[in-house]
Structure formats: structure tokens, C-alpha cells
Amino acid sequence: MMADFILRALIAGLLVAAIAGPLGCFVVWRRMSYFGDTLAHSALFGVAIGLLLDVSLELTVVLACLVLAVLLVLMENRRELSSDTILGILAHSSLALGLVIISFTDNQVNLMAYLFGDLLTVSSNNLIWIGAVVILVLGILIANWNKLLTITLHEELAKVEGLNVTRVRLLLMLLIALIVAASMKVVGILLITSMLIIPPACARRFSRTPESMATLASIIGCISVCGGISASWFWDTPPGPSIVVTASLLFLVTRFGGLRKTA
């Protein structure tokens, strides 16, 4: 009954939303949303390299994001420029470089698909790739959950207590890089960060433990995916942006509901 492409879109969206919830909590707690944005911009650079070399785009996008994440960790210790400025430089120069490189390739490239997602054309191969990344990230996230919480609460305390803070921080950045790469097809480069921060922001006021916030964020992300794909099905709206709009509406509802409660 339901068209295959919609089913694939739904599964891809739900997979990404499920993992973006808990991972996004760390983005919110550690105020890394600009970091997510920077990674997302560098993904287009990865796309450009992939097109230029005619190799798998998934591979080059992941590599571009990972390289950028490592670069940022290395640059973090230099204090002449604020990390805010460094992120801005890296984000926009990698995006611009990506666009310039794409102009040299012969392919007719549908830029919109990369910028805003192309959920309805998700192939079985895409699905396998997204699924593999999500399972990998979920496993690493669960295995390191307490360590990640510890460094988020106080890095120096964690270090004195014997944790290798740099390694855990790098791990978190790499996980975010992987998810950014995996969700490019779902919501697109320009909207990826919203999937990381809006669901946790919705979940915050209903949560009293880190775990409940993470779980609820996953659920809210999945509701947004269902809502966005439904909108796309019934009104022919672009699915990626529709998912983000749904999430934003949920955010407004949770905020508005709160205002009435306290009034």
C-alpha cells in the first residue's frame, strides 16, 4: 500500500532522529551547536571532493567531517582567536571551497539535495549505510555514556579523577561528525544542527535525569520525522524542511504550554 520510497524515507528519518536525540543532548549541554553547524558545512566540502575524485560520497563526507573534528580539537588549545571565530572561519571556508570545487566537476549537481536533504530518494544502499552508522554511534555512545556525562559536568574534576578528557572529548566530536555525515541525506547540510538541538530543547523541561532527556529527545525527533514526512506526502512539501518545521512547532508547543502552566 505505502510506496516503498516513503517507507525507506521513514526508516532513514527515524534512524537518524533516534540517535540525534541523545547525541544532541550533549550538543545542548556543552553548547556545541555552532560546532555541529561547522561540521555540517564541511560536509559539502566532502561532497565536492567525492564528486571530483568520483568515489563514494558517503566516504568523503565522513572523512571531511572527521578531519575537521580532529582539526578543531587540535586548534582548541590556541587561544589567540576565540573558538567561535575559528569555527566561523572553518565553516564558511569549507562551504565556499566545496562550492568552488563542485563548479569544476562535469556533473550536473543538484545542490539543493545536499543543502536541504533528499529524503524521498533514499536508496536501500543509503539505508544500510545510515543504519550501520547509527548502530555504531549508539554502541559507542552507550559504552561511554557516564564518561561523557562526567566531562560535561566538569572537565578538570574528571581529569583529576583519572579520566582521559581529551580522548573522550575527541570521541564525542567524532560521533557528531559521523551523525552529521549520515543525516545529510535526511535533512540536508543546512538543517542538520536543528535535528541535534531542537528535540533536546523540547525534552529539557520534562526531564529530571540525563537519560530521560536523551530518550525523550529521541521520541520527539521521531515524531518530527513522522510529521514532516506526512506533510510531504499530503501537501507535497520538501520532507527535510518539513521535519524541521514540525520539530520547531513541537518546541513552540512545549514552551507555550509551559507559559500557561506558570501563569
Partner: peptide, 9 residues
């Protein structure tokens, strides 16, 4: 210890 309000713990 700066605890960000966004973190419920």
C-alpha cells in the same frame, strides 16, 4: 562548578 541549566542531573 558551573552547571548549565540545560542539563537535568
Amino acid at each position: 562548578l558551573h552547571i548549565d541549566q540545560s542539563m537535568p542531573v
